[in-house]
Design a protein around this nucleic acid. Sequence first.
DNA 1: GGGGGAGTGTCGGAGGAGCGACACTTCTTC
DNA 2: GAAGAAGTGTCGCTCCTCCGACACTCCCCC
Lengths: 229, 229
Amino acid sequence: MKTAQDQHLAWLARSFGRPDYLPLTPADIETLQNVAEPISRFTGSHLFKEGEPAIAAYVIRSGEVDLFRMHSGRRRVVARVGPGSVIGDIAMFGEGTYMSSAQAVNQVKAFRFDRDVLIPELAKHPALCLRWLVSALRQLQNTQRRIVHLMHKTVLAQVADLLVEEAAKSGPDLELSQAAIATLLGSSRQTVNEAVRTLRDMGAINTGYRMISVVDPEKLNEVAAGHVG
Amino acid sequence: MKTAQDQHLAWLARSFGRPDYLPLTPADIETLQNVAEPISRFTGSHLFKEGEPAIAAYVIRSGEVDLFRMHSGRRRVVARVGPGSVIGDIAMFGEGTYMSSAQAVNQVKAFRFDRDVLIPELAKHPALCLRWLVSALRQLQNTQRRIVHLMHKTVLAQVADLLVEEAAKSGPDLELSQAAIATLLGSSRQTVNEAVRTLRDMGAINTGYRMISVVDPEKLNEVAAGHVG
DNA sequence: GGGGGAGTGTCGGAGGAGCGACACTTCTTC
DNA sequence: GAAGAAGTGTCGCTCCTCCGACACTCCCCC
């Protein structure tokens, strides 16, 4: 139970922290130029930290940022996001505290939007505001669909689903340790191993050291849907 | 596995379809008056049906509406919402299809907002749009928090959490059948019964036919946190 | 080229929860 | 007030997953 919270968060990241949450276009950013404060961060420095009052949101221009949470002295990465992603906005609009820390993976350039400045400005640009709204609601919808899709499914199905998705995103050869998969799914390494073996036995994937290659996406989809077991 | 999808949806309803999702104030509605089409529905008639293209959202003015999904000829209620609630907006903005059906429980008055009319109008009222955005994002945040809070918790803890929350909302005496709780939680009736018995044995609640009364909310909170059990 | 850390493969035990089955109680309705 | 529907209380079985333990393999780096 000790790390359960973080595992769940990691799992959530696959739904919530997805890089396809890109509400703002470059044109939008230009519109907001007078309230955008360009910042840059060296590798390892923070944009914000977990628990701080969320007074600003950030739009990443270049580089990558890790979102993570601390637990018992160790960090657990929740998501890694790149250019175009908006981070911290949910906490900011909610007037709460950041739910995770954001740290630069490499040299990062970003725009910082201060809450007190951004909101009045947004009020002047309804189209922009509307786009953000639509994007947020779509995110909410995706989340619902995704959770309905995955929740209470067997780990085997979850692994299959994860592999299909990752393969679609970055090609059939995945550099993923089984422990990493387990963390993403919020399950245990052993169970993932069991699932991986099953998938290998049915010829859907090949496995190696820190590597999984998808051979038969069709079959994986069937498993992910729960039709095979 | 056959009804799993719907149970999950029911579970989701507690996070997503919550009546505290009230983005619009009466003043807002007034602002939108020229695009609001007042409608009224008799008991049992539908506002929209699952799977239909989501071309409109509704704001309930009076009466109650059940959101439900059909499964193998039987309906499963996902949520019951009252005045002020906005329904169908997520699907509408997402340009998808309704994820559930909406049926009037009693005489219902509502405003219907057609997608094609609402969006241009929203674009003219940034403040309103902004409020909706904030509300949606807060909803998203609540959802995250809630899922992190409940996911992978034992059914006992989930039941305790549900009871605490319902008691806080509508007083210590709850008219809830155990089967209904099971549906809300996406678990089985038997397991809920087991949990209810445990809670009764420890003196946290009293039970009766279709009724549960909360005696010791403190103790329930402890159980919900996972510290007991 | 050898040691140590990281990753993989496997077993067995324990526990949570789903599910079918069945007896019993309480409410509703005619 | 009797029949039937709805709800509750319990068993026993099975499946899935977690967890600890241990052997083994692969990679990196001194």
